[in-house]
Structures are given as C-alpha cells and as structure tokens.
Design a protein around this nucleic acid. Structure first.
Lengths: 200, 200, 200, 200
DNA sequence: AATGAATGAGCCTTCATTCAT
DNA sequence: AATGAATGAAGGCTCATTCAT
C-alpha cells in the first residue's frame, strides 16, 4: 500500500510558496531556496519535483491561470443575459480571490518574464484568448462583430491597466470601484450601440 | 578652455544603452557589462558615473519619464479646447517616439521593479500624478469633478493596459488603433456627460 | 524452501548495469541513479546492497578482473608449450569477450580512478601481478629470467597501450590485428633469444 | 601605457595550477576553486580568463601537448639517421620533463575525459597523428611501408602502456629502463627487417 | 525486499562592485 | 577619464546518501 502520494501535496505546497514568494518580492527573481523554505522543504526537493526553476515558475503561472479560469467558468454559469456575462467576467477579475496583492504582483511579474520566456508567453496568450472569447460571448449579441472586437480589446486593456496601477498601490483603492469603472465603460458604450442583427 | 565635459556625453550614452539593453532583454535584469559595452565603454566606467546599477536604472527611468513629459508639454501647447487636450495626451502616449517596443518593455519592466524599489516607485508616482493632472485639465471643464476623477483613472488604466498588451505583441497591432480605442472611450463618455458648471 | 536469494541476482544485475553505464559514459562518473535505473531498480536499493558507490565500483572492477581471470585460466589449460602459453594470454586479452568497447572503457576509467582509490589500486595490482606471472610462465623456459622479466613488462605495456588507443577509436581497428602486433613483438624477441639453461 | 599584460601571466599560472591539481588528484575532477587557489587567485578570475572549466582543461591539455611537441621538434633536429630519429622520439617521451608523475596522470586523465569530450578527443587525435608521423619518418627508410605502419602502432602502444603502468606506480621504476624497453623492441624488429628499397 | 521522500554538501557560474594604474 | 584586474557573494543544480514505510 503505497503512501498516498505525497507528491501532489508537495507540488501544491511549492506552487503556493512560489506565489507567496513572488508576492512578497514583487518580482520573479525569487530564489529556489526562498520558495522551498516557505514550503518547509529543501531546495533540492523543489528541484526533485520540478526539475528546474523555470518549470516551477511555469507551473505557478499555470495555477494562477487555472484558478482564474475556474472562477470564470463558475461565474459565467450564473449569467443569464449577454450583459450579465460581461459583468460576470469583470467581477471575476476583481473578485476577492483574484484581486489580491500577491496575485496582482505575480501577474505583473509574469507579464515581464513572458518577454523572455516562450513558454510563459504561450501561457499568457492562452489567457488572453480565453478572456477575449469570454468577452465576445457577451458582446456579440449586443453590437456588430467588428465593434465587439474592438470593445473586447478595450475592456481587456482596462482590466490589465487597473491591475498594473493597483500593483503600484496608486490606483483605485478598492476592487469594487475598479470593477465599477469597467462596468461604466461598458454601459457608456452600450447606450449607443445598436444590438447586432438577430440573424448574426 | 576645458574640454566641454565628456561626462554628460557618457551619461547620455549609458542611459541610451540601458534603454536598448532593457528593450533587447525585455526586462531589467540586464548586466552592467551589457549596458556598458553597448555604450562602448567599460563597466567600471558606468560605475564611475552612476555609482551603482540601481542609480543608472533610476536615471534611465527618469529619462524615459522626462521624454514623455517633454512630448506632453509640447502637445498640450497646441491644444485649444479641453477635448483637444485629452486627445493630445492620448496621442502623445501612442506617438512614434513613445510607443516603441523597447520603450514599452522598459515601462513594463520598471513597473515591476517599482515593487521593490522605493525610488522607482516614487518616480512612477510622479508620472501617474502628472498624467492625472493633465487628464483632469481636459476633463474638468467637461463634467463634474467627481466624474472627471473617475474618468481620468479609466483613461490612464486603459493606456497602461494597452502598453502591457502591446508588450506581449498580442494586443492591437498599431499605435493608431490603440489611440483610437481610448478616444472612443472618451467620446462614449462625453456623449452623455453634461459640461461642468461654468463657475467651476 | 526459502526464495533462492534474490540478493545475488540483484547484485549481478547492478554490476552489469554499472559496466553498461560506465561503457556508455566513458568514465566512472556515472550516477548511482543511472546505474540503478539501468538495472531496473531504485538507487536506494543499490545502496542497500552495496553500501556506498565506491563499493559498487569496486565490485564491478572485481567482476571484470574475475572474468578476465577465468578466461585466462581456461585458455592456459589448452596451452601445451611455453610459446603457446604466451599466445593464449595475448589472445585472451583481445578475445571477443574482453576487447569490447564498454570493457575497454571501463578498464581505462578504473586505471584513472585507481589513482585516488587505494582499494581499486590494490585490485589493479593483483591483476598486474597475475598477468606478469602468467607471462613469466611462458617466458622463463625460453630465455634467461632477467630477460623474461623485461619482456613480460614489454608485453604487458603493449597490451595496455593497445587498450588505451582502442578506447580512443584511434588505434588498430580490430582485435585480431592488435593481437598480431603483440605476437609479432614476441616473435621478434624470441628469434634471437637463447633458451634458458635446462636446469633453470 | 597599459600594464604589461598580466593576462598571459595569469593564464599560464592557471594552467600550471591545473596540471598540479590534476596531478595531485589523479583525475580531472578537480574543482575550479582548487585550481584557482593553487594559482593564488579567486575562482571567479579563472572563469574570467577561461570562461568555463571545460575550456581551462582544454587549454591545459593543449599546453601539455605543445610542450611535448616542442621537445620532440628539438630532439628530432639533432637526429642524423632514421634510427636516431626513432631514439629521439622514444627518449623525448621518457625525458625528465615529460615522464613526471603529474604529467603522466594528466595524460591518463585526459585519455578518459576524451571519451566524453569531443574537443579533447580532437586534441588527442592531433597528438596521435603527430607521433605516428614522427615515427614513420624514422621507420619508412628502414623497412617496407606496410611494416612501418604496423611498427609505428606497436611503438606508440608500448609508450602509452608504459605511461599507464607508471601511473599506477607499478611499472618500471625509472624512465631510463622504460625507454630501454622500447628501444629493445625496435632493435629486435630491425634486426630482421630489410631496408626499404632505395627508390621508395 | 524495495522504494519514494528528503536532504546536505558541494560545484560551476554569474555579476555587481572595487581598486590600482 | 578610463580600464583591466580581481573578488565576494549568491544562486541553480546535482548527487550520494539516509530513512520511514
């Protein structure tokens, strides 16, 4: 009877520790030793499970993305109308579990690292595409597709921008007002937008 | 007649080299040697002029900020109306001299570094405040102050967000459409906004 | 009836794996994990049976020596005359079971390791003495003892040298010609050598 | 007026230190720190001048080869007849400057390392070819070419073998008798060999 | 008997920084 | 003004080895 896999437990602990370390440091240049000791293990063990530092960081990013993805799916399920879908997406991004200091800083750090790391860039692309698709699912019924495309871009940019500014602790003081700002943008645009032709 | 100070020349060359190095690497972890050799000098000389790496990086950030500031002042001078002021600010941020790959990446990298470095954070605050003030100078005549405050935040966030997304080469393909997106946001908001009382 | 000891089986498998690993790597700095996984077991098991890496390596060397010794004994049994004894020894060293790439490389690697490891050096001494004795048993009847001593040295050196050069894949292409070269040396010397006095 | 290049001095010191370290350790797995501290410098400096450990080791091998090459050239210059050429080559290999414990061990170690390292193997090939050519220049006038080829191989093998056995401190006690052994082999062969046709 | 888990120790390598010239 | 020389400090990674199960 093999010990009930301690491996997944350790991997999770190490990824959590990585997020904490990145959050504390504000950037990705945390040491393996720092991460490992936060997880209560030796740095050698971190290498044992993840091979190289880069892979641990990728796994960490993947986790952050997966969490956001999970939350998004859940939120979208409850949305009845296109407009509600938009709100769902916006709210998820500024929810208590996502819009936390350490997560925000990790996002920012990963954005920078993605400049050098192909795998990380690929992960961010996945995220960007998913966000775009989700937004489009709410926008397309409400306006012509070309307009929807542009608006999805605008919303995504505003969300990312609010993250950055929050990282500096120089933006809006609370998630609620950040979310409200995006919603306000959406409303302003929808006021004038004609719904898309029914046969679209 | 003393040699006309080679010092400023070297400092400028080193800062330019730093921007180039950061742009090439996509992050701030460039080596002093890399920067120095791009400037055609020894790394020891870089230390001679800047003391520590951190100071060179701060000087670099200051230069980027100063360039943006200079461009902004010039652009605002030509703006006759409040609405034109807003356009001027937006356009400057997406102008050819600002919205370049290397500058964009430098911005992103500095945002991350600012998480750890007080001086850099202070610099970014200066920039944020200036941007805010400039935007307010265009917004206040057009809407109630509280509304203007929020809108300034929204515009700033969108600009920053477009920078980030551009860094990933996954956002809008060209500066013109990025600028248009922000302008569109402004227009959508202004359509409904009542002008501020004249006595404000 | 107790399970017929899996221990000897495992030990043999590990030693075989060690030879394979050393042959593949071309040197002794193979990892215990490499050896163990070639044997299909965990590295912990290798330690369980051999204690430390050094002991596994010594056991491996002992096996190589034992195999060579066994082959030698067999070959010498069939030799009727002194001259045939010499040929037997030479041929064993270049036989198909000894003059294999992996065995040759292992020899070379052990020679180097013997510089640092007393136990390995002792093992090589045993081999050297045995080879010397075997050669002497063929040479003494054919020439004065002093001459025989020197010639034993020469033959041994030539054999070792051919091993080294073969390891680099830069020497004679096949075992047959290597053996012929040594035989030729023997013949050249014997042509002039007067047989030893009968009463020796 | 630039300081008279300390670089070559340091490089030489580091290579000397590498030889010493390898000699002391009996193998190539010496640490950069060991080598550096023998040279009286920091390990960082060793990297500064040689880049990676591998390159320092290659430079070391190159030096050993170059020294042997230099000695050989000098010795061959004094040789008047083909037979003297052969003696010259043999004697160089067992001269006081070559047949030293540390050099011998370095040779052996490099032979092993060459199994894994392409560059080292290439270097050893150069040495092997040069030795072969030198031997041939003495042998070809004395016997048919095919015979000469084989004999060159035999001499080279015997030299290498004597090195190995010496490394174990288990072979001939002194260089003189080692050299004599090879000379004896040559003489035995030449006694019967017919000189090559004059028009060869 | 066998293994996964875990670690301490050590090594190569990089880099900012200092200093004598 | 400028640089090559030099180093201390630190980090990633590997590996033999131990231990509980």
């Amino acid at each position: 009877m093999p010990k009930p896999g301690v491996e997944p437990v350790r991997r999770k602990a190490l990824i959590d520790a990585a997020i904490a370390a990145i959050g504390a440091r504000g950037s990705l240049d945390v040491t393996m030793s720092d991460i490992a000791s936060r997880a209560g293990v030796s740095s050698a063990l971190a290498h044992h499970y993840f091979g190289a530092k880069e892979e641990l960081l990728q796994a960490t990013m993947r986790r952050i993305l997966a969490d956001l993805g999970g939350d998004s799916v859940k939120a979208l399920r409850k949305a009845a109308t296109p407009r509600e879908r938009l709100s769902a997406i916006v709210n998820v991004n500024f929810s208590a579990s996502q819009f936390r200091q350490e997560i925000i800083q990790a996002w920012l750090a990963f954005y920078v690292e993605a400049q050098k790391s192909q795998p990380l860039r690929r992960l961010l692309r996945v995220y960007a595409r998913r966000l775009h698709a989700n937004l489009m699912s709410g926008l397309v019924p409400l306006m012509p597709r070309a307009e929807a495309e542009r608006m999805a871009e605008g919303i995504a940019a505003m969300i990312d921008g609010l993250y950055i500014r929050r990282a500096l602790r120089d933006g809006l003081p609370n998630p609620a007002s950040a979310a409200a700002l995006v919603e306000d943008y959406v409303d302003a645009k929808l006021r004038r937008a004609r719904p898309a032709p029914a046969n679209d």
